[in-house]
C-alpha cells in the first residue's frame, strides 16, 4: 500500500510537469498545425533561467521561499515568453504559407540552435548545476505511511493553478475566443477581424511561459540541471509531446488528461515492471495510439481534404 501511494504521488507530480509542457505543444498545434520541436528547449531555458535568477537574487536558502519562488517564476516566465515571441517572429512567421515539412525542419533547426547556444561558455556552460533548494524537502504531512514533501505539494498546486488559469484564458476571454477561432479556421477568423499574427504571437508567449513554469518545476523537483543539449531535456519534451498526442493534439483538456495518463503509466511501469524500460513504455503507447486512434483519446478523427 505504501508503495502504491508513493507511486501515485510520483505520478501526480510528474503528470503536472508533463501537463504544463504538453499544453505548449497543443496550443501551438491548435493555431498553426505544426509541432513546435523547439518547445522542449524553451523548457530547458526556463529551468536554467530559474537557476540564474535564483543565483542573482541570492535567495538560495529556504529563508523566504514565499517571496523568492513567485519572483523567480515570474522572471523566468517573462524571459521565456519573450523567447517564444522572438522564435515565432523570426523563424516561423516567414514560413506561415510554406509546406509543413519545411516548418518542421525549421523547428528542428531552432531546437538545435537553442540547445547548442545554451551550452556556450558565456551562456549556461556545459557543467551540470544544482538548483538551489528553494523549498524544503521536509514532509508536510504523511499519507498512508508516505511522507509528502513540501516540494511535491507546491509543484502540484502550482501546476493546478496554471492549468485553471489557462482554462479560463482559453474558454472565458476574448483572446481565448480568438485563439479558438484561429484554430477552427484561420482564414475565416481573419475575415471576421481577428488579428491572426497577434493571436499566434500570444499563443507562443503563453505556451513558452507555461514551459518556463514546467522547467522551474523540474529544477525544484529533481534538483540538478544538466547541460542544455543533454538528451534528458529532449526526452522530457518528447514525453510531454507524447502526452499531447495521446490526449488528442490541439485539445487543451486532452493534453492534461494525456499528461497524467502517460505519467502514471510510466511510474507504475517503472515501479512494478522494469525501471529501465520506462521510455519504451511511453513510446510504445504513442505508437499504439497513433495506429489505433490517430486523433488521440479526446481528439476528433480528421479527414485529409484537398
Amino acid at each position: 500500500m505504501t508503495k502504491f501511494v508513493q507511486v501515485c504521488l510520483n505520478g501526480l507530480t510528474l503528470g503536472s510537469l508533463y501537463a504544463l509542457i504538453a499544453l505548449g505543444y497543443t496550443l501551438v498545434y491548435g493555431v498553426l498545425r505544426f509541432i513546435n520541436f523547439a518547445h522542449s528547449d524553451v523548457v530547458t531555458i526556463g529551468a536554467w533561467m530559474a537557476f540564474v535568477f535564483a543565483g542573482i537574487l541570492g535567495w538560495a536558502g529556504t529563508d523566504s521561499p514565499l517571496i523568492a519562488m513567485p519572483v523567480i517564476l515570474m522572471l523566468s516566465m517573462a524571459v521565456c515568453a519573450a523567447l517564444g515571441f522572438t522564435i515565432e517572429r523570426l523563424a516561423y512567421r516567414p514560413l506561415r504559407r510554406a509546406p509543413r515539412l519545411n516548418v518542421l525542419i525549421t523547428a528542428i533547426g531552432v531546437s538545435l540552435l537553442l540547445q547548442n547556444a545554451g551550452q556556450l561558455k558565456w551562456i549556461f556552460g556545459t557543467q551540470p548545476q544544482a538548483m538551489p533548494k528553494l523549498l524544503s524537502e521536509q514532509a508536510l504531512f504523511t499519507l498512508a505511511g508516505v511522507k509528502v514533501p513540501v516540494v511535491d505539494v507546491v509543484v502540484v498546486v502550482l501546476a493546478f493553478v496554471l492549468l485553471v488559469a489557462l482554462q479560463w484564458l482559453v474558454f472565458r476571454t476574448r483572446l481565448g475566443q480568438a485563439m479558438r477561432a484561429v484554430s477552427f479556421d484561420e482564414r475565416t477568423a481573419a475575415l471576421m477581424g481577428v488579428n491572426v499574427d497577434m493571436v499566434v504571437s500570444y499563443t507562443f508567449m503563453i505556451g513558452s511561459a507555461l514551459a518556463a513554469a514546467g522547467g522551474m518545476i523540474y529544477g525544484l523537483k529533481y534538483g540538478s540541471l544538466l547541460q542544455s543539449a543533454d538528451s534528458v531535456w529532449v526526452l522530457l519534451g518528447l514525453k510531454a509531446f507524447v502526452a499531447a498526442v495521446v490526449g488528442g493534439i490541439g485539445n487543451v483538456r486532452g493534453a492534461v488528461a494525456g499528461a497524467f495518463l502517460i505519467a502514471f503509466i510510466e511510474m507504475f511501469g517503472a515501479a512494478y515492471r522494469s525501471p529501465q524500460m520506462r521510455d519504451v513504455y511511453v513510446f510504445g503507447i504513442l505508437i499504439a495510439v497513433l495506429i489505433l486512434k490517430p486523433g488521440g483519446l479526446l481528439g476528433k478523427a480528421t479527414v485529409e481534404k484537398v
Binding site: F34, I35, L101, L104, F241, V245, Q276, D279, L290, P294
Partner: peptide, 27 residues
Amino acid sequence: PSLRLRGDYLAIVTLGFGEIVRVLLQQ
C-alpha cells in the same frame, strides 16, 4: 505506420523508434 501517418507524426514515430533501439541496446 506511415500508411496512416504523415509529416510530423511520422517524424515522431521514427524518432521514437530511434530512441527505443537505443534503450534496448543499452539493456
